[in-house]
């Protein structure tokens, strides 16, 4: 089923494919609208989020303002979804990084590759006393 993003009286409504947008990213995005808008997330169908914004103030927004708001929300949803991908994909490396930063070198990785020469230098044979 196809949903169309729309402006409805004083409300902006955007649909997001749940297989492409994470729930986290939608809430992180809406967080930034919470001071000026009533935000709402629901399912339009089992595979689609319905995201809506309604101004808290009773002043009616102009058509232009609503149009811009819709654009901004659409773009922000995309941005926050991308951010969310980065956050999730990199969580483990980030944890590792911070653990390393507050250690004293005891978790250091082995260096990559070898340092031998054609004659056969072996770095591990250099005594460490």
């Amino acid at each position: 089923m196809q949903f169309q993003n729309e402006i409805k009286s004083n409300e902006v409504i955007v649909f997001a494919d749940a297989s492409l947008y994470s729930k986290d990213s939608i809430f992180k995005c809406l967080y930034w609208y919470g001071d000026k808008f009533h935000t709402n997330v629901s399912f339009a169908d089992s595979g689609t989020y319905r995201v809506s914004l309604k101004p808290i103030s009773t002043n009616q927004l102009s058509n232009l303002e609503l149009e811009l708001l819709l654009q901004k929300l659409e773009r922000d949803l995309i941005d926050f979804n991308l951010r969310d991908i980065v956050t999730k994909e990199t969580q483990n490396v980030r944890d590792l990084l911070i653990a390393k930063a507050f250690s004293n070198g005891e978790f250091d990785e082995m260096p990559p590759g070898n340092v031998s020469d054609p004659v056969g230098f072996n770095v591990n044979k250099v005594a460490n006393d």
Partner: peptide
């Protein structure tokens, strides 16, 4: 400097 990637070389 490559061999110093092995910490024991630098430590030494």
């Amino acid at each position: 400097g490559r061999t110093f990637a092995w910490n024991h070389m630098a430590e030494r």
